[in-house]
Write a protein that binds this DNA or RNA. Structure first.
Lengths: 146, 146
DNA sequence: TATTGTTATACTCTATAACTATA
DNA sequence: TATAGTTATAGAGTATAACAATA
């Protein structure tokens, strides 16, 4: 017998990719800065946990080390992130966001939030609050797994 | 002054990619059938709207025609979808899911829903209901755009 | 020997531009 | 001329396998 969890799972499986596609398109549409979603998320992590390592980014995004490495290659090549050798453990790479990276991140975040916010304006206050709280619940459930 | 919509947008921007990554990983982990998320979604559309065209798939997924064409190439190459010439307009391609495609779809859907459902089991009944209803609201807002 | 990161390789997703066939 | 689909080309995201450097 399918329960509430199954119904919810079906909805999540159907709707999340739809929203994701909007986010991806939106992110890509800021021609000048043009951050992909994984690039955007990497910058968020590196800014929040200044001095994190490549393994840190990989873990937060649920990527394998080679994937994270290539992702950082792209950001470093565009001057948004720097790799430094860690003092203490010379195998470890310390990642830092540059001023340019921070500016691109802020700009992309602002524009994406604005677009999302405009669409979400179609919802009434109760629905908005429900969506916000639902996101919190999902974050709790999914963060860390992948 | 940032309002409820902005807060909600920030949450969506943060959480949706996280959930998406879980779905993608989950989808890929069924070694035998191995459907990507876009492939899965294509099959859903083709099964639901039997006889749809390539443009139909592109529109539903928010893809350009070449992207949809290549996506269908992959599914057709694996015997999950057939292309047929449409009667009436010979430019148009009629897409149909094969028995094998339908079986792969059912199997992938079942497995993914089960994994999602298991994780969502961490939520109580009220939260589950909130998430389900939030998904409905988001579907209403995002379906069609992209 | 174990860990951190990288390189090599391969595949999918996605786009834009140019083309074909049909309408 | 306009439309449906395709092919050509290119770049990002992702993975596994193999390797280098350090611990």
């Amino acid at each position: 017998m399918p329960g509430k969890g199954d119904e919810c799972a079906r909805e999540v499986l159907d709707v999340v990719p739809t929203v994701m596609r909007f986010i991806r398109t939106e992110m890509r549409s800021h021609r000048a800065l043009e951050l992909s979603v994984p690039q955007f998320r990497s910058l968020v992590i590196i800014e929040r946990a200044e001095g994190t390592s490549l393994a840190g980014v990989a873990a937060h995004l649920g990527l394998t080390p080679p994937s994270a490495c290539k992702l950082i290659d792209g950001l470093a090549g565009r001057g948004m992130v720097t790799r430094k050798e860690s003092s203490g453990d010379r195998r470890r790479v310390t990642l830092e966001i540059t001023a340019q990276g921070a500016q691109a991140l802020a700009s992309a975040r602002k524009a994406s939030q604005k677009s999302l916010s405009r669409l979400l304006g179609a919802l009434d206050a109760e629905e908005l609050s429900r969506v916000t709280r639902a996101m919190s619940a999902l974050r709790r459930v999914f963060e860390g797994r992948s």
